[in-house]
């Protein structure tokens, strides 16, 4: 088996809307190895979730994968028949959705849903499936799992719903988990519990993780590598220390500069000027051009994702090469 669990190459996922073609993901390449964690960060609306949906084979019309390859354990899974994809999903590849209600059915009790999820892929008795479900709830820090199993999703708080969705994703110890903002609804002590659980899974069963989040501090502590997205493309990628301490791309710098912890209390936070460009009418060239202090005529052609030192890539013609001031 290949040591690389996931390799996405030149992925393009477009939405064919009435207003035009929206290139939500437009040439994304990322990879993550066994037991490793890739942090996927970036602008809101830049295509992180759509990248996740594409890997899961869950892009619905008017959206469509129009280009690129998604290699899961060496095999291209783009266009795999739905039956085969369904077998992978939930057992070998799991996704924790930004919206936990995408995992949970509002009209079914939690126990019904979890037992079904276990038995969809494993031939075990109901009693055993229930035991595994309650055990999974316990691991994500849901107290009184026995009683909670009998509840309906609306009877849970937002964060508890999210933990149930996480527990379902962990049920089959998948080889790849795509986690989309999984812990933003949780307090930091419970978040720590989940992250510890996930680290154990990565270490002991070699599960590879794609961790989509806005929380750069979580990425700092959890991930091996980071990819930063802007307007449907990866604009910077590399090992965590490199990207966080020596960000090359002006967008990455702007992003890190906005973290409240780096700003003095009470004064306005540093923000990137301007507004996210509409993906429906992207001008040619670097998509960050309208907001970038370094932009000039050279930026009018789209820069390639190019190497700057070992494993560190960025898409910019006027890269920052100095350490970011603290």
């Amino acid at each position: 088996m290949s040591a690389e669990t996931l390799r996405v190459e030149g992925l393009q996922t477009h939405f064919f809307t009435r207003a035009g073609v929206l290139k939500a993901v437009d040439g994304v390449s990322v990879a993550v190895g066994r037991g490793r964690v890739l942090g996927l960060v970036g602008e809101s609306g830049s295509g992180k979730s759509v990248t996740g949906f594409s890997i899961m084979g869950l892009v619905d019309p008017p959206g469509r994968i129009v280009g690129g390859r998604i290699l899961f354990q060496g095999r291209d899974i783009v266009g795999l028949p739905e039956g085969e994809m369904r077998r992978l999903r939930g057992s070998r590849i799991a996704m924790i959705f930004q919206d936990p209600m995408m995992t949970l059915n509002p009209v079914l009790r939690i126990d019904t849903q979890m037992i079904e999820a276990v038995r969809a892929h494993d031939d075990v008795s109901k009693a055993e499936a229930r035991a595994r479900s309650r055990d999974a709830l316990g691991r994500v820090g849901i107290p009184s799992p026995d009683e909670r199993l009998k509840a309906y999703p609306h009877q849970f708080s937002g964060g508890m719903r999210q933990r149930v969705a996480i527990a379902i994703a962990l049920l089959h110890q998948p080889d790849l988990i795509i986690a989309d903002e999984p812990t933003t609804a949780l307090d930091v002590t419970i978040q720590g519990q989940i992250l510890a659980e996930v680290q154990t899974l990565a270490r002991e069963t070699g599960t590879a993780l794609v961790w989509i989040t806005h929380d750069l501090a979580v990425v700092a502590g959890l991930a091996d590598d980071i990819a930063v997205m802007y307007a449907g493309k990866v604009v910077e990628a590399g090992p965590v220390d490199r990207v966080l301490d020596r960000p090359i791309h002006p967008y990455t710098r702007g992003l890190i500069g906005s973290v409240p912890g780096r700003n003095r209390r009470g004064v306005p936070l540093a923000q990137i000027p301007g507004m996210t460009p509409s993906l429906l009418s992207l001008p040619p060239g670097c998509a960050f051009r309208g907001r970038c202090a370094r932009a000039d005529a050279a930026c009018a052609t789209m820069p390639e994702l190019s190497p700057f030192g070992l494993d560190h890539l960025a898409r910019c013609v006027h890269p920052h090469l100095e350490v970011m001031p603290g």
Partner: peptide
């Protein structure tokens, strides 16, 4: 809570499970 806040400057953190039992609002 304050001691569990992740920091931009701490890398490769060993996250910690909650100690003791998490009580239930039920």
């Amino acid at each position: 809570l304050l001691s569990a806040v992740p920091r931009l400057t701490s890398r490769k953190t060993a996250f910690r499970s909650v100690e003791g039992e998490i009580p239930s609002p039920l």
